[in-house]
């Protein structure tokens, strides 16, 4: 008799523990009748907010799909935000969602009713590792009966085949490498051409960098070459032992210094509509991530992007932005 009770206890334990876990999980989600629960997990290591389940078994190898979140117009949803590794922030400025702090272990629930149709970009707005700047995607709200749009998912190019790190000597090459590898490219565009939209930003799009040379008054090809040589040799162009033969050198260094400082200290993006949401993209402070020499290399890369059109400095580039 005792023996039978014991066997039943063992079988009970072996079956009831998994069963209870399953049942409790089904009941734990606070879903009201007309609400749909959407689980969104931030995976910093892959640079994705994903709809896939992230668990102990798959976290270490799986490349999680960045989520394209589809909603019906007027649908009520609960966004359940969690993190699989580090601190993230979930932000959809166009829909007024967030920024929501998502700390590992603390699940944040956002109730939302999809009131406007369209394609809206979401972001991770707290730096979360190498892939952070790719941690973006789309919320697609579709009126009933229409075919939902399918925007191209933003996936982390850094998680694709690795870039070769060039030597410190090739300053321009190193700058280009850092520009891509640090994620600058996600906001400032391929080859610094800019054009990336920043919601409610006073200038609408993130500043471009292919005209940096002109902005720091390095309009002459020879001057640019001389200046790049300084960077290449590891000489601080702001304070060289002997001033090089460059026109308006004091002005050049002043502008160069301001640009370097902006990279070091970062800058808040100003709002276009003061009552609107904060723009999602800000210039981060890089001083704790990049050395002075690396920042110079990135500047060198920008300078090298100048085409050889040797024209006078226009009024449009005398503004404050670099």
């Amino acid at each position: 008799m005792k023996e039978k009770i014991a066997v039943i206890c063992v079988l009970f334990v072996l079956s009831v523990v998994p069963g209870l876990l399953f049942v409790n999980q089904k009941m734990a989600w606070p879903s009201r009748a007309n609400e749909r629960v959407i689980n969104i997990t931030g995976v910093g290591a892959r640079g994705a907010w994903t709809l896939e389940t992230v668990n102990g078994l798959n976290y270490w190898w799986k490349s999680f799909e960045p989520a394209t979140i589809h909603m019906q117009l007027d649908e009520k949803v609960v966004l359940r935000l969690l993190s699989a590794d580090v601190f993230h922030q979930f932000y959809v400025p166009a829909l007024g969602i967030g920024p929501v702090d998502v700390e590992p272990g603390y699940i944040k629930k956002i109730r939302y009713t999809a009131e406007k149709a369209g394609v809206f970009q979401y972001y991770c707005t707290s730096m979360c590792g190498g892939c952070h700047f790719y941690m973006q995607g789309w919320i697609v709200v579709t009126p009933a009966g229409e075919k939902p749009a399918t925007p191209r998912p933003i996936s982390c190019s850094l998680c694709l085949p690795a870039f070769d790190r060039p030597s410190e000597a090739g300053a321009v090459a190193l700058g280009e490498y850092l520009y891509q590898n640090m994620g600058c490219i996600t906001c400032h565009g391929i080859a610094g051409r800019g054009g990336i939209e920043n919601f409610n930003y006073i200038k609408t799009t993130v500043p471009a960098h292919d005209r940096t040379a002109e902005k720091i008054f390095l309009t002459d090809v020879e001057d640019r070459r001389t200046f790049l040589d300084l960077i290449r040799q590891g000489i601080d162009p702001i304070d060289p032992d002997e001033p090089p033969d460059i026109d308006r050198y004091r002005l050049v260094t002043a502008r160069f210094k301001a640009a370097v400082e902006l990279i070091e200290k970062g800058k808040q993006a100003a709002r276009l509509d003061m009552t609107g949401p904060d723009p999602p993209l800000h210039m981060p402070a890089w001083q704790d991530k990049l050395s002075a020499r690396q920042i110079h290399a990135i500047m060198g890369y920008f300078i090298s992007l100048a085409t050889d059109r040797d024209h006078e400095v226009g009024a449009d580039i005398l503004g404050n932005d670099i």
């Binding site: 063992v10 523990v17 668990n55 102990g56 699989a84 272990g105």
Partner: peptide
């Protein structure tokens, strides 16, 4: 034993974050 079953399930299907 009950805890052990829970641990195995948690390790495989729970959060990948140790703490």
């Amino acid at each position: 034993l009950a805890l052990f079953v829970l641990f195995i399930i948690a390790g495989f299907w729970g959060s990948p974050i140790g703490n």
